[in-house]
Amino acid sequence: MLGLASVMATPLMRCAVRAAAPRAHLHLKLLRHARPAHLAASCFLSTGPGDGTQHTARIRLRTRLLVTLGLGAGLAAAGGYVYWEKRQTLRRQRVEQLKRVAVGQGDFSLTDHTGRRRRKEDFLGGWVLLYFGFTHCPDICPEELEKLSAAVASLDRDPALPRVQPLFITVDPERDDVAAVGRYVKDFHPRLIGLTGTDEEVRRAGRDYRVYASAGPKDEDGDYIVDHTILIYLVNPDGLFLDYYNRMKSEEQICQSVRNHMKEHVTL
């Protein structure tokens, strides 16, 4: 009997404590689990609705939410880092593969349209868009060079981007001397550099980019058409060949691709 009285007394006391100091309920929470159900009910009735029990539930919900959110954010951050790390690894692997690719590995040495000697290494540290063609080209070269110039001009308009150097290398050194190339590049982007050289120099530069070029038969004027590879090459600041654009690629597609390559570029 006495034992029951003491049991009856403690929960009531506890409720009184809870009512007086609602903040203490976190400690009481543990004790409450040990309490018989009917006593808990009486205590609940004695303090009325909207008391500490609901408050506790709310707090617990909030804590749980916070913990869940915290864990979620942590997991997302970890996942994001793993994803980023994986992409970085892939990029590094790509650069390693590109270094092994035999395209654009040589160091061309040619003469520009002002008569200056230029080597490929002179263009290291900057982005290059490169096109092979010839000045007597009826339609494709001017169209491609116009597209290239428009793409460079469009990238120029974004001050956040590094400058892209447009280059034109002739596949027809017989007719395209320094003066002819000089006249030709004036029709395109103001920063376009035209390059020419001896037969051997030009052939070596072309071979390096797997450029096919074959002069057709001469007519009575001595005029001829050179059949050649029509590609625009993207070379990164490390001098590595990164991408190429064919006739089907629009100016916008080229710009977008160059931007993406710039974004993903990691200086070696």
Binding site: P138, D219, D221, D223, Y224
Partner: peptide
């Protein structure tokens, strides 16, 4: 308006 070589080229084209 065009060089003879271009005339030939454009006709084929």
């Amino acid at each position: 308006s065009c060089p003879a070589q271009w005339v030939q080229y454009f006709s084929k084209r």
